[in-house]
Design a binder for these strands. Structure first.
Lengths: 330, 330
DNA sequence: TCAAGTAGAGAAAACCTTTTCTCACGTGAT
DNA sequence: ATCACGTGAGAAAAGGTTTTCTCTACTTGA
């Protein structure tokens, strides 16, 4: 089923068939219509390989990630795919763990297949993928992972997200807002903590730990073991910690949200929705991040110029029940 | 950087260069070596599009899924990729939600790109993808989703998995084993329940509900509200339910695993490992499933014959701490 | 010394599509 | 009647690779 068959069936030459189908060239309107109709009838679909060979565009991009869980990559992937499917672009997903050799293999396989571009993603914004993408013959966009000098990098605005959370708590009348978060060596952690400090002041401490429920438990233990006034809100570094915090509070007889409001970060449905009460959380908009990354790499592939540098996309607050209050006012 | 360049640099014709690089044809060993060396030096990599155009093999396959979360698809994907990367095959991931139109678009895009085959996967083994793959010009393998008549379908052996769980509980001395599981209209649920019944007998009931922690809570409430003897073990339909069960038991002062052993299903790290105590669970071996699916579709693509029908892959028990006892004896 | 055979290497076709160039024919103007 | 021009359509090249066929020159055996 090639364009030869279409041409033969329509009684025209291959070139005429091609021009008819692509709406190019000059020809009688009747001819064009006839070719199109016949192509439709016999179900002709052009071979993308042949087309790509000539046009230097394969309508294919690669998504490289070391995020095994897919916690971050999957929403990003969904966004990319959603944005690009309309442009006829398909996406190679390459999970490379943290193996440089595997990364190299995948990158080479993609280059051989003439991908129009590569999006690099990861599980942590301040770490590089274990493979050098800085001098590839195709454009590269970094999404949710550290990019190289002069590259296009997309990330969520953690500071803005943190502010959103703390301001929401403040708006609900909370004054003693604590912050329980992940390891301090994460850039996101420092950024969120700093924004938290700006809005919440010095009333309560920042507790650094690990990204686990158990740490949320522990942190509540530590705070409530302390003499003096207790916090009336806890802003958590992610939803898992928040879940640990909520569970620990409940076990200790502290009511959420009546006595203490809790906000999580990530809006990881599976955690946030299953917590009792369900968590109000900050959504990093990973799908939008993916969409932007997809459109950006496409623009670069088409030769359009894109300003290099880091672009931060806004987070948004998702209100559930762990804070009390009504929906967001904005 | 094409084979032209290699030929020119080596002072041979294109055909000789090609034959040298592919270890085909007749030529002086010295010539072959020289061409190879030069190709390596100038970093020549053959254009897969041109190669595919001729060979009718694109070394590309598609993974179609409607599993948005990626809970099931991601491990399957990892297995596929792991198995196929050695063969130079890259994988298009297409998330089609439950949208037939979107599915159609993705399938057509993949066919245009001349994929060598398609693997269909889903979030539920007894449901079809919302797109008909029964008469495609490329081989199709179904993994963790219902296939069509005469297709190759891979699934996990839920009955065997359930037996594994219940036998483990029995081996630990548990005699009153209850089963709290998901909606009865799931095939897996019925299969697991039936295997449970075979091994555990009629001592305790099967409680059907939904796939959520809250149902685990509720179920414990219902069981403990009942007069008479309580179960000494609960086999749960998935890890989320198991987590709800464990939490509910703890809240009620029932000790896990001392008083009641709990086994989950899915071995979803993020749930199983964060539960207190961490869940012993049944792993469906999704990565192996993916690996098998990958190798199978590759075999079909290469024209090798594969027996159609349903192939069940074994589950395995992953021991953590929610049952007591030591590691598995087998 | 000549015929037959073989090793080594190149020419050309094929894969499928797009695009540029060329050509034939008909129309309108002079 | 001749010229210029526009219209419609086909021929051919290009893209990068593989594969089959062809050709030359040399080796071997008689």
């Amino acid at each position: 089923m090639t364009i030869h068959d279409v041409a033969a069936a329509a009684g025209v030459s291959i070139s005429t068939a091609s021009k008819a189908l692509n709406n190019t060239g000059r020809m009688a309107a009747e001819t064009r219509e006839r070719v199109k109709r016949i192509a439709g009838e016999i179900g002709f679909r052009p071979n993308a390989l042949a087309r790509g060979l000539l046009s230097k565009r394969s309508f294919t991009i690669g998504l490289l990630t070391n995020d095994t869980y897919g916690r971050f990559t999957l929403p990003v992937m969904a966004g990319i795919s959603e944005a690009l499917v309309d442009h006829g672009v398909s996406v190679f997903l390459c999970a490379i763990e943290d193996d440089p050799a595997l990364g190299q293999i995948h990158v080479e396989a993609m280059l051989d297949k003439q991908v129009d571009g590569i999006i690099a993603s990861g599980k942590r914004m301040d770490r590089r993928l274990p493979v050098d993408l800085s001098s590839l013959p195709v454009p590269v966009v970094y999404a949710f992972t550290e990019g190289t000098e002069n590259s296009v990098t997309l990330r969520s605005d953690d500071a803005q997200g943190a502010r959103l959370a703390v301001e929401w708590l403040a708006k609900l009348g909370r004054r003693r807002i604590a912050h329980v978060t992940g390891p301090e060596d994460f850039f996101s952690v420092r950024e969120r903590a700093s924004a938290y400090r700006d809005v919440a002041g010095d009333v309560e401490p920042v507790l650094y730990g690990i990204w686990a429920e158990s740490w949320g438990h522990e942190a509540v233990g530590a705070i409530w073991a302390r003499p003096g006034e207790k916090p009336d809100a806890i802003f958590c570094g992610n939803d898992q910690i928040a879940r640990g915090v909520v569970d620990a509070l409940r076990e200790r007889g502290v009511r959420v949200p009546e006595d203490v409001s809790v906000v999580g970060f990530d809006n990881w449905e599976i955690v946030a929705a299953q917590t009792r009460p369900p968590l109000t959380s900050i959504d990093m908009g990973l799908k939008e991040l993916g969409r932007e990354a997809g459109l950006t790499v496409l623009a670069l592939a088409e030769g359009r110029r894109v300003e290099p540098g880091v672009r931060k996309l806004p987070c948004r607050l998702v209100v559930r029940q762990s804070c009390g209050g009504m929906g967001p006012t904005e």
